[in-house]
Design a binder for these strands. Structure first.
Lengths: 338, 338
DNA sequence: TTGTACGCGTTATCAC
DNA sequence: GTGATAACGCGTACAA
């Protein structure tokens, strides 16, 4: 009920001009000690704070950064947001989060909305639908307008911008290597369709690791799900059918699910069958048995992305110099392997 | 590269006035078909979109809503955000998420920042530190400025505003009732210190259920942790010491942890000891055995909060009529009870 | 030392 | 039918 006070209000009340007030509050040398004191005291009393919107309009800088992610319920993305928030807040930026919900349309709508002045730059990870359609026009428009963009995790070579990813291929490689070194022979891969950039890279790491250890690839040991949804029957069929002694899953949910299934069938983990999953989240940590997993270091990824973005936002030059930061995954060994 | 085009640019290019352009793009009747066509075509060609910041400044409406949560990595809060986003986006609002990280100072900073014009209203859940300090001045200031506020989950009677909570007491009551009806006698409670509003309510439901079934309260069966961090030794001590046949935990992490512990001690779940946890998240669903839990319906909570907020934001009247929506928790029965 | 004037991009009112 | 003007709140170059 006491609306925010403006420069104008102070000026009227103290019978000075608006610019005097403005300068006084910035402690400008131009203004006399006396008037400064008077104005500053008054401003503090009424708790004056400049209106962000007006400042944004004037500076053409919002101090907001827009984050577009496919999903907020997945642990990995929330850790990335944490990292972004941490760095951005420290630099005085707010974070505007929009969720595309894996939908191309929502991604487009959100980006267009935010691009109209609400933010100084974007950090985003592609929705699966976008990766499927391979339609990146909405993103190209944004970059053409000169709005800085950093992509993370789910990226595409079609867009020239800064990127932060983990070495997914290397992550899968490490996992398979671990299996082989502990004597496993029939190593399965549970993944999603190749249109997801990360799944593709992980599949490549899987193949490469087998090859480099002289094990030939058996395509029947690869289970490809159409999306990130767990499909009960597919799992059931795959695991009753195949004889495998190790399983690499592209996310922890697949892994937990599969572990459950084989345990119900009376197999022991890790003696009969070992498991490794991507995404080192709570599920991995608290699973029974706990799941060895490939940490994607989401928080670091977020910090790094925010750092890259803010650098671009605050720099003046027009030079188009983009870089890709590749973070190294780490294998977190737990009970599901040995 | 090609900076955003403005009304002024169009006006200059087409040699008409700015106001003509503005009206033409709003399809005003005042403007002739011809000029409208010309202007609209030009605008579409150059992909004109009004600048949100300028519109906000003019309307004193940002179409942004600020969300302040203690933690973004916890599943419950992300489901709430999902619900908020869903409803808010449908109504044309953006969601600005800030994380207080359970810190009083960050909560204050974030609120003050957003309150200076960046948002039309707040949705928030108190940080634990704020509940501990019982200092709500930053929130009072915001409401006194006339900024609408909806609190959810962790609320306080000290602030007059709309609220959405679940009936935590009832949730705990349901859980304990379930235990008793399946023949359990020595029912433990694993909770946090009382300053967390929800923990307090849950403890009350626990006591009430025992009492109403003629079981006397045994304080030694209550384990109080100082925070939401798992304290290994405290768990260890509690579960080797006490003889209990059922455990209610105020969050799923406590529950999973405790289940792990007793399983390693050779107890069978649910035959020897049953478990129920709050927060029906992924951990509950995928635990071994899966955890019976009290669903807090975060998404519905978020939608409801967003609905209440946007109603207040869009209504003109000054009447101070606040309401509290109490959602009913649901018991999701899984393998950890029977 | 203080005040005037202008611009950021938009919209609404009023005059021509 | 079209355009000029003021206003939203702020900051700053320039004038007094």
């Amino acid at each position: 009920m006491k609306p925010k006070i403006t420069l104008k209000d102070i000026a009227r009340e103290l019978e000075v001009s608006i610019s005097t007030v403005s300068k006084a509050l910035k402690n400008s040398e131009e203004i006399s000690r006396d008037t400064k004191d008077k104005i500053q005291a008054f401003a503090k009393l009424y708790n004056y704070k400049p209106n962000n919107i007006a400042v944004s309009l004037k500076n053409r800088r919002t101090k907001n950064i827009g984050v577009i992610i496919p999903d907020i319920v997945h642990h990995f993305f929330t850790t990335v947001i944490s990292g972004i928030e941490k760095y951005a807040n420290a630099k005085g930026y707010n974070v505007l989060v929009c969720v595309s919900n894996e939908s191309f349309d929502r991604e487009v709508i959100n980006m267009e909305l935010l691009a109209n002045g609400s933010i100084d730059g974007f950090i985003m990870s592609l929705s699966s639908e976008t990766q499927l359609k391979k339609d990146y026009n909405h993103i190209k428009e944004v970059t053409q307008q000169g709005i800085p963009l950093v992509m993370f995790d789910r990226v595409t070579p079609e867009i020239a911008c800064d990127k932060v990813v983990i070495d997914d291929e290397q992550g899968a490689f490490l996992a398979v290597k671990k299996f082989i070194e502990s004597g496993k022979k029939r190593i399965a891969l549970v993944t999603t369709d190749d249109y997801l950039s990360v799944s593709k890279a992980r599949a490549m790491g899987y193949e490469k690791a087998l090859k480099s250890h002289g094990i030939s690839l058996d395509p029947s040991l690869i289970l490809k799900l159409p999306s990130m949804e767990v499909e009960e029957e597919a799992f059931e069929a795959f695991f009753s059918d195949k004889k495998v002694d190790a399983v690499l899953c592209v996310n922890e949910i697949f892994a937990i699910h599969a572990m459950r299934l084989v345990q119900l069938k009376g197999k022991r983990i890790p003696e009969d069958i070992s498991f490794i999953g991507f995404t080192d989240g709570l599920l991995s940590k608290y699973a029974m048995p706990s799941l060895t997993s490939i940490a994607q270091h989401g928080e670091i990824m977020g910090e790094e992305a925010a750092k890259m973005l803010i650098e671009k936002v605050e720099i003046e030059t027009e030079e188009e110099q983009f870089s890709t930061t590749v973070l190294q995954p780490t294998l977190m060994e737990r009970e599901s392997t040995k």
